[in-house]
Design a binder for these strands. Structure first.
Lengths: 238, 238
DNA sequence: AAACTGCATACTGCATACAATTTGTTCGAT
DNA sequence: ATCGAACAAATTGTATGCAGTATGCAGTTT
């Protein structure tokens, strides 16, 4: 099982790992759902989507099973899969669960974080503050998400990280709906700083409590924005 | 996200609804993996399994995607899927995550449990104690699991419940490996009684702490038993 | 003798063809 | 005219065939 030397000089993209069609289809649909290009509650006909994505129905159906497991679509027997709805109540539950998981992750991370981990986190925090000052929204959000993922990875717990990933994909989707809604930048940056400080002090209880509250606040802030836009478009329910 | 709950994806369904072949195949394989009939690390050839299960390769492949999402098998490109290994480290992480999730669930359940919920829990506890006295191992385990599931449902948080379900399937598998290993019956029963008391007192912090510690202890107890049998059969890492 | 290359084989990945089930429509009966 | 049943169209579920890729073996080379 020796792996041959893999310098890969002439191949097309070294970073992009080779994926099967069903993986690519799943990834494509995932972003489409998150971006709202496939609206909540809409039905996805297999033949139509397969032509649109340029793949056959077989890999598409496999992709559907994966997305259903992630909670992005709903499968009903002998019916077209439905893009999962975004109900207010669902968002509330989602961020509640997310807050709990990240709280746990922070508690564990405070015990297990290496110096490198904390250094990396500090770097990210610095960069995020810079983006915050410069008003670079996209970069800010990217770093923000990376910080959360980093903390979860620092917990050194694979099942927890996996659970977090599936929830995050749904949260990203909700966040996209209320794009640019997070007007609590300053609060958020400060809260992140507090969390980082608690982690560096190896205070798991505080780090967990702070991160959990932070995520919960993000959820409620999102809910407020969403409730307003919900009032004008009442549709998309079946 | 929708309030609609899944109609029994793979559970031992009381009403045996007619399921598609891929669902049936997934359910069948799930129990086979949990029961250890498909040993960890073994490869699953599509044609062989499809004949064995009496289905075609297409629904079988779809079932594989679902099981992979549940973490029961590993998919590698252009290779036979592998039954996920049960490494000691993995079990440790698994129960750690499970403990965290159930702790959170108990905290929420303490706030949201209805009188019916608590009554049902009390009934289950009584029945479990009876099985404990009579030494009925199977029934005891069934009720025990049901209690944990009930508490999680009492949290009224769908994403949390879903995350719990996927972790539980893996934990059941590990528990099956160390079948009958849980010699801490008495402790376990008492701990459950304490948890129930905390829930009835609406003390979320205590309920969460007790349930989390309970699950963590179950995990370490399982680890001890597993470590012994692990010494004779070499580890299949994952 | 060891290692590398080329070929044969088996298996996965994908596409297409076929069967089963649902849904929309039309015709008929009350 | 309305409700219902049966038929027709569309769509999902399943099976099979074909192509690409990995694995093992044999022949050749160093």
């Amino acid at each position: 099982m020796q792996q041959k030397s893999e310098p890969n000089p002439g191949r097309k993209s070294p970073k992009l790992k080779r994926m099967g069609l069903h993986e690519r289809a799943a990834a494509r649909m995932r972003t489409m759902i998150i971006r709202g290009e496939l609206p909540p509650g809409s039905q996805t006909q297999e033949t139509r989507l397969s032509k649109e994505l340029g793949v056959s129905r077989t890999p598409l159906r496999e992709a559907m099973k994966v997305l259903a497991a992630e909670g992005l679509i709903e499968l009903r027997p002998n019916r077209s899969p439905r893009i999962a709805g975004i109900a207010v109540e669902g968002i509330s539950e989602l961020f509640e669960a997310l807050a709990g998981i990240e709280r746990l992750a922070a508690e564990l991370a405070a015990e297990r974080a290496t110096g490198r981990d904390l250094a990396r986190l500090r770097t990210l925090q610095t960069r995020m503050e810079a983006h915050h000052r410069n008003g670079k929204l996209d970069d800010y959000f990217a770093i923000n998400g990376e910080i959360h993922n980093t903390i979860v990875r620092m917990a050194r717990n694979t099942p927890l990280r996996e659970a977090h990933e599936t929830l995050i994909s749904r949260a990203e989707r909700a966040r996209y709906l209320a794009l640019g809604a997070d007007r609590r930048w300053s609060n958020s940056v400060d809260e992140h700083a507090d969390i980082l400080a608690a982690l560096e002090a190896r205070n798991g209880e505080a780090a967990g409590r702070l991160l959990g509250a932070h995520v919960a606040r993000t959820g409620t802030a999102l809910l407020e924005v969403l409730a307003k836009s919900q009032s004008r478009q009442k549709a998309s329910q079946s």
